[in-house]
Design a protein around this nucleic acid. Structure first.
Lengths: 147, 147
DNA sequence: CACGGTATGTCAGAATGCTGACATGAGTCA
DNA sequence: TGACTCATGTCAGCATTCTGACATACCGTG
């Protein structure tokens, strides 16, 4: 339990709060995706492909915040199980554009609904103005850290 | 490029932005802690102990957002290298209260300054009001997800 | 007092992600 | 054209974290 509050207070650190929120969100997403046999990175990859068909392995990796090596392992599994397709040879350069299969699209539909319910729950106690403020705040943090 | 399909729009999703911000913060922290030979979890553990001396392994794990098994291996390494101390036997129950050594405190001092500089940079483009709004928003999200 | 329910510390194996490295292709510039 | 730089896909090895499991200690209720 909590004792004395001497020293720097982690409870008032935006960085700590950011990590806590992100951790909570990930846990909630894992909870709803597990019954569907899907991980968060798994879902993220499919969602990215739905919105931007033809994304390459490296681009997917950046979008899902993992290394391109990790994403490659995932893509090989997704391709083997018939969720995505990649051409055997690169149309141009070395980039292999990836696309969802109908099976992948069906799988994503259920996962997307589950994830959306989590996000709705997360935003439940916030007004529209508060959501906009949160959006602007997060973007500001990202922008400041990018340099 | 805005696209209106059935899926979650990643560009406007607060969840995605939250993950992006958290990822950026972690990367920035890793960058400044690496020269000090320290990882983020490593630092988090020391910072927690500085603010709440006598924290147990499980409590440290929850505070650093890892499992108690992971925290245990970290604590064993920190104890072996002389950054923290734990009694050989539990004063009460099974809980082993952990404390920083002077060496641990010195190590933390440098790391803490580095991390603080990152947080200052992250908050650079925000007004005081925006920081308060961000704080309230994140707490609201955490609260909503806790149920 | 006895009893479940909960929490803790710890060990072992498995899974996941990362770092390092290599070859290849595209773009840049002198 | 040739050299240089950068990005990509991929393989291999390593590190870190997690899952599963066990024994133990506290606490509430009956």
């Amino acid at each position: 339990m909590s004792q004395d509050d001497a020293g720097v207070d982690l409870e008032t650190s935006l960085g700590y709060l950011l990590k806590e929120a992100s951790s909570s969100l990930r846990a909630a997403m894992e909870a709803v995706l597990r019954p569907l046999g899907m991980t968060v990175t798994h879902y993220s990859c499919l969602e990215l492909l739905a919105q931007r068909p033809g994304l390459s392995n490296s681009e997917l990796a950046r979008g899902a915040f993992v290394t391109r090596q990790s994403m490659n392992v995932l893509l090989q599994a997704l391709e083997r199980d018939g969720y995505v397709t990649r051409p055997a040879e690169a149309p141009v350069g070395k980039v292999l554009p990836t696309r969802l299969t109908p099976k992948g699209r069906r799988s994503l539909a259920k996962a997307s609904a589950a994830v959306r319910s989590v996000e709705v729950r997360m935003l439940g106690g916030m007004t529209q103005a508060e959501q906009s403020a949160a959006y602007a705040s997060l973007q500001s943090m990202i922008r400041s850290l990018r340099d």
